[in-house]
Each structure stands twice: as C-alpha cells, then as structure tokens.
Simulated assay, not measured.
Amino acid sequence: MRPKPARRSNRERTETTRAELIAAARRLFIEKGYAETATPDIVAAAGLTRGALYHHFADKQALFRAVVENEAQVVAQEIDRASPSTLPPREALVQGGEAFLAAMAQPGRTRLLLLDGPAVLGRIAMDEIDGRHAARTLREGLAFAAEADAVPRSIPIDAVAHLLSSAFDRAALAIAAGADPTDYKVALAAMIDGILIRAA
C-alpha cells in the first residue's frame, strides 16, 4: 500500500498559485506587452480562475509590479554572485557590471525592466524597485571602493551610482537591439576606471 502524498499547507498552495500567476503573466507581458495582455489571458495561461488572480493581486498593474520585482531581484542575485566582497573593488565593479549585462540579456527582461516598467509603473516606482536591487549592488560596490580608498572621498557616491546605473541600462538596451556586447563591456569598464584612477 503506497503512502498518501503529503498534503500541502495553505501557505504552500498560496505561494504556488502566486508563482503560477507571475510566471504566466511574465510570458504574456513579454510576448504581447502590458497593454495587449488581458487578465483573462493570464488566468487561462496559468490554468487558474480570475478569482484566484484577484485574491492575490489587486489588479493587472499589481501583478505586473510583482513580475518586475521578481525580475529585478534575479538580476541583483546574479550581480551579487559575480562580485563577492573577496574581490578587489575594481574587479568587483567590472564583474558585477558584466553580470548585469548578462542577466539583462535574458529574453524579454529589458522590455520588462527598462521599457514597459517605467511606462506602466512610473519612473519613481521603478527607481524605488531598482534601488532595492541592481542599483543597490552598484551603490554598495562603489561604497566598498571608497572605503578601500580607491575613490576620492570628494566624489558623491550616490550621484556616481545613479549615472553609472543609467549607463548600464543604456548598454543593456543597445545590446538587446543587436549591438556588440564586447564594445559596451569595454566602454563601461573604462568609465569605472575613470572613476577609480583618480584615487591614485
């Protein structure tokens, strides 16, 4: 007699349903775009009901925000993995930047985070999300370099992080449009070196 499968807890069922909705929504937002994706399409793709969707998310925009948060979190995890604190500051910044570009090369990610994200959620909301994820890793990398006296104390770290973050975003968009990733990696490394060279 085979043992009965363990029953999932309410929390496990809730997390599974939420993950299924986010995964289905992600696919459709990438394929069709936010505006052309309707909630009935999402629940059909997830094999769930509209009631399940609205139990977890207030509306389509709230679901889109959850998709964007997930994507941003994955990107930050890839950066953190590629730039451990054991690396020297320059290598951590360069390798973290290359990890960002590699993570953003995942099909559809630039559309979600850099095109539809700001259009749907607004620039302030996207800056807030980015500030907890990729921009946070860049700011921490620059702060680490400053603590190691690799950046002059007169340089405002937050401003530099904001500008470099914008440069990385533009590079990701260009690469997604077909540009040579190597060119942008070289250019971004040169920008980082331009900041660090002044520490001599």
Rank of each mutant, 00 (worst) to 15 (best):
Q95H: 11
Q95G: 05
Q95F: 00
Q95E: 11
G96F: 09
G96N: 03
G96I: 04
G96C: 11
E98Q: 15
E98W: 13
E98K: 12
A102K: 15
A102Y: 14
A102C: 01
A102M: 13
A103W: 07
A103Q: 08
A103R: 04
A103D: 04
M104R: 00
M104G: 00
A105F: 01
A105P: 10
A105G: 10
Q106V: 10
P107C: 08
G108M: 02
G108L: 02
G108C: 09
R109Y: 10
R109A: 08
R109M: 02
L112K: 00
L112N: 03
L112P: 02
L113P: 13
L113R: 03
L114E: 03
L114F: 03
L114M: 07
L114A: 05
L115A: 03
L115D: 03
L115S: 02
L115T: 07
D116Q: 15
D116P: 13
D116I: 09
G117M: 14
G117F: 12
P118A: 11
P118C: 09
A119H: 10
A119Q: 15
A119P: 04
V120C: 09
V120T: 05
V120R: 11
G122Y: 05
G122E: 07
G122W: 10
R123M: 01
I124S: 12
I124P: 01
A125R: 12
M126K: 06
D127V: 12
D127S: 11
E128W: 00
E128G: 04
E128K: 06
I129L: 05
I129D: 09
I129T: 08
